[in-house]
Write a protein that binds this DNA or RNA. Structure first.
Lengths: 144, 144
DNA sequence: GAAATAACGGACAACGGAGTCCATTATCTT
DNA sequence: AAGATAATGGACTCCGTTGTCCGTTATTTC
């Protein structure tokens, strides 16, 4: 598993938040119901997204959470960084403790470009892109 | 982390076994010392590699483990399959429960080729390749 | 101001991966 | 045959992730 389950949940929840009118505050409970993510756990994850500045929140009736920035300004990599951190992009594939550019493991050279592609993909795609992809499924002219 | 720690250990241990004279039986204890992997844990991992037919073992004095096939016939993907299974190659990146070709998640199309590249890399490289890479470092004519 | 609402935050339970310990079994050496 | 050696397999601990529960705090509505 490349991303933690919590991180997968975060992406799913943020996609849902983006797909609704981003102006409005959504109750965590509603996000949990819509995405079928365990509500109390999602609550923790969302707390973290709020702390990291991806979501803003409001307490009390008619409160909830909403995107803190425009959907186009939140990259998938931002979400991953907020939940999992970016360590998995630097870590040696076979866990060799001394793996580096000067002391590469036997998979290092072949893995490097792949790792860069993964990072690039996550860094390019924004929440806005993902929701547009969801809506425009099957239409010509998509980027990938 | 893309591979489990146990799987990383397995690759490291098998690389070491390949780098020694593959005819001889190596004591798990020696492999653990050379690779700095916790010995009792490595013992469990190696048991699994024996059960899966990647290593063969012999008990008693002068016993130990050695490659069950030629180093060129053991692909990195075989090791991953033996320890972690191949589930991570099928699993949706963002954990969407209904993600498939007909019901793709918004990252599905972009992720597919990347997943294939990862699988391809692991399926192409054998233990023999890795050890050759280790030995021939810096020489011209390497493949990657 | 009171009641309802919804995020916040801490404590805890459940689960699996990582790692240890030890008794057993098979094999080699003398 | 006896003792030493090394893998095998079971039970166990430790810890981070996943997930739950509940009281507190802030805010809105009436």
């Amino acid at each position: 598993m490349i991303l933690s389950r919590a991180c997968e949940y975060a992406v799913q929840a943020l996609i849902y938040a983006t797909s609704q009118r981003p102006e409005r505050f959504l109750a965590v409970r509603d996000v949990a119901l819509a995405t079928r993510i365990p509500m109390a756990y999602l609550s923790k994850i969302i707390q973290r997204l709020v702390a990291r500045g991806l979501l803003s929140s409001r307490k009390g009736p008619r409160g909830g959470v909403r995107l803190a920035r425009l959907a186009g300004a939140i990259k998938v990599l931002d979400i991953v960084e907020a939940i999992d951190g970016l360590g998995f992009l630097n870590r040696c594939v076979i866990g060799h403790p001394r793996c580096s550019e000067t002391h590469p493991c036997p998979l290092h050279d072949a893995w490097g470009p792949l790792r860069d592609e993964i990072q690039g993909l996550l860094a390019r795609r924004s929440l806005g892109d993902l929701v547009r992809e969801l809506r425009g499924r099957g239409l010509p002219g998509r980027r990938s």
